[in-house]
């Protein structure tokens, strides 16, 4: 099995899975019907991408694993999503800021992944980037609305930015699998995206009259499977059926 490629795919797909799961929790509880429907669309896009990635990963694993085995039957430490996407839906500001900080990265990432020497990944990236381009527009627009809306919304969204900003640096961390795949021309050298990422989010945050936090510290660990406490609860919920009723078809 191509271990590095397999791990590399999980590194991309787990982000979409966990963020899709978080957005799914919101369905029916949004601030307005229209917004509820929009957030669900993003969740559906991400979960659709997840299926393509995991189906490909399952093929590489080549031991009769299915997309669902990969999605539902790993242990806490085996999920390699970044910490940002597992942060809870504290309020709509956190939902939007989390989305914005992720979308901006993911768009740049997919843009490069389209050039991957791995044709399957390039094809998934090519399809996904249109979806993510829309997500990015949606979340950026909302950052501006909330930042430059009322003083209450400004305060709330600034609080979310201050809290979530410390998870952004991890987006650019490279695991061993990342480094191996970059060397093979399959993976994206995220180091090259970093400057552009921060200048893009700075531009939008400033347009939204928000302060870019001057953090000297960042949290990381998700890509090594060392998560925040939030992930355990998310997995307990997500894996409930598979764990309670093992080896059944649904």
């Amino acid at each position: 099995m191509k271990v590095d490629l397999y791990n590399y795919i999980l590194g991309i797909a787990d982000n979409s899975l966990i963020l899709g799961q978080r957005l799914g929790e919101l369905c029916g509880h949004g601030p307005n019907l229209e917004t509820d429907i929009a957030c669900t669309n993003i969740s559906l896009d991400l979960l659709g991408q997840v299926r393509s990635y995991y189906q490909y990963a399952a093929k590489i694993k080549n031991d009769n694993s299915t997309e669902d085995d990969i999605a539902f039957l790993r242990k806490e430490r085996d999920y390699v999503n970044v910490l940002l996407v597992e942060q809870p839906n504290t309020d709509f500001a956190y939902v939007i800021v989390r989305q914005f900080l992720f979308d901006t990265f993911y768009y740049e990432f997919l843009n490069e992944l389209q050039k991957s020497h791995d044709v399957t990944l390039a094809a998934i990236a090519h399809k996904s980037i249109k979806e993510v381009s829309y997500h990015q527009r949606f979340s950026s627009d909302w950052i501006k609305r909330l930042g430059d809306g009322t003083s209450e919304s400004h305060q709330k969204v600034q609080a979310a930015v201050n809290d979530l900003f410390m998870y952004t640096d991890e987006l650019f961390h490279q695991t061993d699998a990342d480094i191996a795949m970059i060397a093979d021309g399959i993976g994206v050298d995220t180091g090259l995206l970093k400057a552009n990422y921060y200048s893009k989010i700075t531009k939008i945050l400033e347009e939204a009259t928000l302060q870019v936090p001057e953090h000297k510290y960042f949290h990381k660990g998700g890509k090594q499977g060392i998560h925040t406490e939030h992930l355990g609860y998310l997995l307990a919920d997500m894996q409930y059926m598979q764990r309670t009723y093992p080896n059944m078809e649904w």
């Binding site: 307005n32 019907l33 229209e34 917004t35 429907i37 929009a38 669309n41 829309y134 527009r137 949606f138 627009d141 609305r145």
Partner: peptide, 16 residues
């Protein structure tokens, strides 16, 4: 549908 401004109206229309 309901929307606060024209961009949102377009986005909501697309999503709905």
């Amino acid at each position: 549908l309901h929307a606060a401004d024209e961009e949102m109206a377009l986005e909501n229309a697309r999503d709905v």
